[in-house]
Design a protein around this nucleic acid. Structure first.
Lengths: 251, 251
DNA sequence: AAGTGGTCTAGACCACTAC
DNA sequence: TAGTGGTCTAGACCACTTA
């Protein structure tokens, strides 16, 4: 009794189509973080699939930490309280030391046109308007990091310097609270580089000194690119940390 | 029509029990690496469960890379060829390019006494005997990385240069197959550094050129430190990559 | 054509949570 | 008690591989 479905979904398994529709609803903001999504039964009716198919679609989203199931309660949109959210994506630590919460200073803010790289990373047209700003990060009162951040002016329509400067918590919380952009995944690549003049002073170095360059692309649901960020790190006393565990055996 | 099963399995979901029985059969050697296990239908009969339950049991084993499914062919016992451990923990990629499998050359092997750092990292006494060896890694036939590796001679008693040189697959597979050391977690820290004389030539650079220094501590179960590794990377055309997706412990 | 895994159904009962 | 997710059934048809 295979419905072999409604002609609405593209080619591919039905549960993929269902998964896509759920992600779309999340992207539209139909369900907000920490809210429950409709029950499995209701979603079955809505999408016209059986419980098995519906659960298979949700399985993937749960595995990706986009949804969280709680038996007897419901299925929830994953959220993150502030500190956690921040620490999750902050990967610069003192040599052999623990993670420290930085002090952040906005040192520059403006608009610009997307160059080739920014356009490619953010998935927009070359020449499209973007916001560009720069944060200086201090660890233990010493300037260690400069973040050069680019946002699509289309996704962040109405963003102003005051909004960035006066945000009550982290940048990523502001992205979400004001623009519905929920950063759930980052892809970072670390290079060895020489400090450019524009960054050297802001991280307490001289032009040409060796630094770490961290290039980050941040994503929301459905792999929607949200933010492109190039950071320069004074790596004299700090390093980039990454822990990777695999799960075997199960038992 | 829930069988609510045979009284043979312990408490817990049926599919866990099935999974355990499959793992037992694998441990007994009933099916060998690269062999197909019986078809899903046969296994359903054998374990007295429905196809859905059987597939759920196998799903976990496939996710853990213990079994590999091939549609139209069968389900196979994973052979510890390359992919599994290696790609999981290999984080150096070309700028804006995909991951490449490197060619590995052993360039040095010997024993030594643990200095303070090695002793601390591996959790052994200063002066305890260790194995020290060095691998040169080539990407697209160009020398890019040098791995300086330290192992406790106690954990790896009997290790020889020949064993390292003639291992049939990856280092971490050899650790497991010959010494029972199963690497399941690594902690990596990346620094910007200048190429020391001992590494420069092996990565195609001159002494003092900027490089990436990756310091890795690898762990087995129970956070048992297994390997301490300091790698130097020619970062002219390559970078260190790290993808991080949100993780939440139930809101 | 035969056999395999891949997907899907339309229920059922169990375990847990909240009221 | 009502509602939720968690598990499980006993099939069905589809897509793929091999011969």
């Amino acid at each position: 009794m295979n419905t072999m479905n409604d002609g609405f979904s593209q080619r591919g398994p039905l549960y993929r189509s269902v998964q896509r529709q759920i992600l779309d609803a999340l992207a539209r903001g139909e369900w907000r973080p920490d809210e429950a999504i409709p029950s499995e039964k209701r979603l079955c009716q809505r999408f016209g699939v059986s419980i098995g198919t519906l659960r298979k679609a949700i399985d993937v989203l749960v595995a990706d930490h986009i949804l969280v199931r709680q038996q007897g309660l419901g299925t929830f949109v994953a959220s993150h309280n502030r500190s956690r959210h921040f620490f999750q994506f902050f990967n610069v630590v003192p040599h052999d030391g623990p993670k420290i919460y930085p002090e952040v200073r906005l040192v520059q803010f403006g608009t610009a046109k997307a160059d080739r790289v920014v356009a490619e990373k953010l998935g927009i047209e070359i020449g499209a308007e973007i916001f560009r700003f720069r944060n200086q990060l201090l660890l233990n009162d010493l300037p260690i990091i400069v973040d050069n951040i680019a946002l699509s002016a289309h996704l962040f329509a109405g963003l102003t310097e005051a909004v960035v400067r006066n945000r009550p918590n982290t940048l990523y919380n502001m992205y979400f609270d004001m623009f519905g952009m929920n950063v759930i995944r980052i892809d970072e690549r670390v290079r060895a580089a020489s400090a450019p003049a524009s960054s050297a002073k802001l991280v307490g170095l001289s032009t040409g000194d060796p630094i770490l360059e961290v290039r980050r692309l941040a994503f929301s649901f459905n792999r929607q690119p949200v933010e492109w960020r190039v950071s320069h790190v004074n790596a004299n006393q700090h390093e980039y940390v990454h822990t990777n565990a695999i799960e075997i055996g199960v038992s």
